[in-house]
Design a protein around this nucleic acid. Structure first.
Length: 797
DNA sequence: GGGTGCCTCGAGGAC
DNA sequence: CGAGGCACCC
């Protein structure tokens, strides 16, 4: 049995699995089997050390990672491990879900109502906007999103409003907003994501006896992706481990990519300081990628200054070269990806599910999706337009949240007029004020008006306060409208523990008239209704839960789970996902697209060296997802915000292009190129006519040989582009200067044949096949092109 | 009270 | 190009 669990592990992995007592820090390079180590360690603890499952807490960063670990442990133990963080079994989940459970359990000591609701970023933003409005602070001057981010940062750093430094005016405003926001959230019985972590830390700090209880229970702590912990998360684990010191942390500084939400890879160093006796284990053997891919990865990451150099090894051999493709625009980029996948499929080298396309921002998925649809290539999009962000889903959830926690005025306000009930802004404002003056939420206010003095919408202490309904300021007509809604709500409240979540959803959709309104006969309406039905099927999962728990468990899950695509991961489809989402996954074939300055690295990282290092790590994460084949793609021009932008090739492309293969046999043979440029296949059969024999090097060559690559590349700096426009094509009449088949001479590229020419708003873009430089797209106003003749019929046209 | 249309400004990543 | 905010109109 023992052997089952340790079979197939290398020495370092085995050490990591079997070092049971005391702190352990595992520094694990990509593909070195860290998830495997975590799963095996849990199995080992249960099976060999005979630890009770209740004594183990394993923390991951994503639900996906938690699910994968659960599956693996199941596989190892050959029996099913209880789902999620039930208190009868193993605690395995994300920081947020584990904290949510602890807070639910200890609500009173944590200063929360047990039916608290969790607000996501959007809800949080709504609350901040209301705060600004009520504090008379201009949204123009103090952007709600900036405020939200700042408050989030404070919470992650465990700084409370009273502890804020107010040395600038901005900080003073922030402090006021933060303070008020906290009060508002409390009044609504709501917490945000960051609260889940911070409040758990405060609970433990302020109630040592509670902490002691958890320390006693969780004798074995495991944390994945330790480099991505923020201060609150680190503190949480430090506190829990303070008694028994059995903290097992796995991480890789080079894969720290969540700095934006307060993660600090230096927590890895802090771990060594706080637990000086920690055993440090290095996992450097890579089981995933070819040497070529590791060399490319190393070419990226080795340029970071703040890191510990690592020696990643693989015995997978050299493998295919990295392919770089320079697309014309995002459509061409997408087409290239699909065509390449088709070719791989035709050659039997990959199936759709082997392939992943990764990008920096979710917005980049659009043209990719278009191309996949157009070519009939099956794909699945991970993340992005989140299911739970859809209007109809948020509406239905707002109903449920209000029923769960009638003090939640945000949910109340969201649905009071969905569908339209003719309750206006003024009425709502009056109701909000009047209710709050009576110490109740808006739903509670309706209960008071209705004379329903024992309504569950009223807080306990209010229920005994009145013997008759208090005076209210509403006209009979308005009162009637309000009461119509209240009757619905009261009905649901009365049955909320009797009904399953599914039944509740059905009743809401039906009785509120929302179903009718949604299904207005348009395809879009049916679409939205289908989404509601999908929510219903998620809810069905909770039918068997204890009645008083199922609504809260359901709401908690939907607040903390985001990508629900994971369930059908077995389909044979290409995966489209962001580089962030890609962490922890692997694919035989990986495309990284949008390799342009301002995209990757992202424009908002450009002026900060630390953030640039993080962009580099992000690229590193992407590259190291690939097992066999890696394609790096950039577009010459790209539509951003509805405008055409020309971005220079990403610096990361250059880094890879300049790298060399390091395997011994290659070094001796002199065939050390890591990269091959893809034939520029945009014009179909044209590709063979162009330099097949020469192995066009595309980007690699100009970058390497020409320091002033602006001169050989199409003009790509904004300044140059503007100059080009202003100096403009002085041609009147706007006919193209060049047409397919023209033979042209370019000072640096030599002779070529025009494949295509397109007039743009103020210039002409000419696509030319050069004899030995491959296909380039140039701006006529800028490139020094000279027509030298015409070829009768250009091949392929 | 509610709907329409214009305008402005804006999308980094995620529990 | 898109969403959201706001002014204006019914």
């Amino acid at each position: 049995m023992h052997d089952d669990i340790l079979a197939g592990l290398n020495a370092a992995q085995r050490e990591a699995v079997t070092t049971i007592d005391g702190p352990v820090l595992v520094l694990a390079g990509p593909g070195s089997g860290k998830t495997r180590v975590l799963a095996h360690r849990v199995a080992y603890l249960l099976r060999v050390v005979q630890v009770h499952p209740r004594a183990i807490m394993a923390v991951t960063f994503t639900n996906k990672a938690a699910q994968e670990m659960r599956d693996r442990i199941n596989g190892l133990l050959g029996e099913s491990v209880p789902a999620s963080t039930g208190w009868r079994g193993l605690t395995l989940g994300t920081f947020h879900s584990i904290c949510a459970r602890i807070l639910r359990q200890e609500a009173e000591l944590a200063g929360l109502r047990p039916d608290y609701v969790i607000y996501d970023d959007g809800d949080q933003l709504t609350a901040i906007k209301q705060t600004l409005r009520e504090l008379n602070i201009s949204e123009k001057q103090y952007r709600p999103e900036a405020m939200r981010a700042a408050i989030s940062r404070m919470k992650n750093e465990l700084v409370r409003p009273s502890e804020m430094s107010v040395d600038t005016y901005w900080a003073q405003v922030l402090t006021r907003v933060y303070e008020y926001y906290e009060k508002l959230m409390a009044a609504n019985g709501a917490v945000d994501f960051d609260d889940l972590l911070a409040r758990t830390v405060y609970l433990f700090r302020e109630h040592p006896q509670v902490l002691a209880r958890y320390q006693e229970r969780y004798r074995y702590l495991l944390v994945d992706e330790f480099q991505d912990t923020n201060t609150a998360q680190y503190e949480l684990m430090r506190l829990l481990a303070a008694q028994h010191h059995n903290l097992f942390a796995v991480g890789d500084e080079d894969q720290s990519i969540y700095g934006f939400r307060g993660a600090d890879y230096r927590n890895v160093l802090r771990f060594r300081e706080d637990f000086p006796t920690a055993r440090v284990i290095l996992l450097e053997q890579n089981y995933r990628s070819t040497q070529t891919i590791l060399d490319a990865a190393n070419a990226i990451i080795s340029r970071n200054r703040h890191r510990t150099p690592k020696a990643l090894r693989t015995n997978r051999g050299r493998g295919p070269a990295v392919t770089i493709y320079e697309a014309y625009d995002e459509m061409d980029e997408a087409t290239y990806v699909v065509r390449t996948i088709r070719e791989l499929m035709a050659r039997g080298q990959a199936r759709p599910k082997d392939c992943a396309v990764m990008y920096r921002t979710n917005a980049q998925s659009r043209p990719l999706e278009d191309a996949f649809v157009m070519w009939g290539m099956p794909y699945r999009l991970v993340g992005g337009t989140r299911f739970y962000q859809r209007r109809e889903i948020k509406d239905m959830l707002a109903y449920l949240r209000l029923i769960h926690n009638p003090a939640d005025n945000f949910s109340f306000s969201r649905i009071i007029n969905v569908p339209r009930r003719g309750i206006g802004e003024k009425t709502l404002a009056t109701l909000a004020q009047w209710s709050s003056a009576h110490g109740v939420g808006m739903a509670g206010g309706l209960a008071l008006i209705a004379g329903d003095l024992h309504s569950p919408a009223l807080p306990e202490e209010v229920r005994t306060r009145y013997t008759q309904p208090p005076e209210h300021p509403f006209s009979p007509a308005v009162r009637r409208t309000l009461m119509e809604f209240y009757r619905l709500l009261a009905g649901w409240l009365a049955d909320r523990h009797k009904l399953t979540v599914v039944e509740l959803l059905d009743r809401i959709a039906d009785e509120s008239g929302y179903a009718v309104e949604l299904r207005d006969g348009t395809p879009e309406g049916e679409d939205r209704w289908a989404n509601v039905q999908e929510l219903r099927s998620v809810a069905a999962y909770y039918n068997d839960f204890p009645p008083e728990l199922r609504l809260s468990a359901f709401l908690e899950e939907v607040a903390l789970v985001s990508d629900q695509d994971e369930l059908n991961g077995e389909d044979d489809r290409v995966t489209l996902l962001t580089l962030h989402t890609a962490k922890g996954l692997e694919f035989p074939v990986v495309f990284i697209v949008g390799l342009e300055e301002n995209i990757l690295p992202h424009v908002r990282s450009m002026d900060d060296p630390d953030q640039l290092e993080e962009e580099r790590r992000l690229m590193y994460v992407g590259v190291t997802r690939a097992k066999d084949r890696l394609y790096l793609v950039r577009a010459f021009r790209r539509t951003l915000f509805g405008r055409n932008e020309l971005n220079e090739p990403s610096r990361f492309l250059r880094d890879v292009a300049q790298a060399r293969v390091t395997t011994a046999e290659v070094l001796s043979s002199g065939e050390a190129e890591l990269v091959t440029a893809s034939p520029q296949a945009r014009e179909g059969r044209q590709e063979r006519s162009v330099g097949e024999s020469q192995r066009p090097r595309g980007l690699a060559t100009p970058h390497r040989t020409s320091p002033a690559h602006g001169a050989v590349e199409p003009p790509s700096r904004p300044a140059a582009a503007i100059a080009g426009r202003e100096g403009g094509p002085a041609r009147e009449g706007r006919g193209p200067q060049f047409s397919p088949g023209d033979r042209v001479d370019h000072g640096l590229f030599g002779e070529g044949i025009v494949l295509k020419s397109e007039l743009t708003a103020d210039d002409e873009e000419v696509t030319i096949a050069f004899a030995d430089k491959g296909i380039k797209t140039l701006l006529a106003s800028y490139a020094k092109l000279r027509k030298i003749g015409q070829e009768a019929t250009p091949r392929g046209l």
